[in-house]
Amino acid sequence: MTRLDKFAETAMRSLASRTSRRSLFAWLGGTLAGAGAIPVLPVARAAAADHGATVPNPQDPGDPHSCDYWRYCAIDGFLCTCCGGAVNACPPGTEMSPITWIGTCRNPADNRNYIISYNDCCGKAACERCFCANMQGEKPLARTQGNNDTVWCLGTASQSYTCSTAIVVGVATDRKQ
């Protein structure tokens, strides 16, 4: 627990050191001002959320169907955005692997390094669309959690690989350049 506490403290201090209260208000203000442009119908919002890219978010720039989208800096596989899923959701009928590997990608909009979890979607045939092979920070299998050669369909009912997602799970505080 001591190590965990230390990690949490370091993470929060690091976040706080780079995030002023003023910038939080500026971000909140911008968000609220821009809110009028977002459809308020719950159905429309749900649809947008499901397919991620429908409503552009200036803090999450780029095309999630393209290999050069910032979150995909270390993705290896078929993009779920091209396979009936979303950048952070699996296609219908598949199962998201709870065990996976992580990369660290820099978001060009806010210049933060984010920890990205590349959860595989499993249970259908390989999607075979939008294949990407990006390797930033990728390691050999001896560094298991940093390896993307692996079929990360582990802990799922079927290990048949379908496609890959790229999910923001945190801000990296000590990325080595």
Binding site: G123, K124, A125, A157, S158, Q159, S160
Partner: peptide
């Protein structure tokens, strides 16, 4: 080789 009893699902 790896096979599933129902193609992409079922018993591996």
């Amino acid at each position: 080789e790896t096979f599933y009893s129902r193609g992409t699902r079922g018993v591996r």
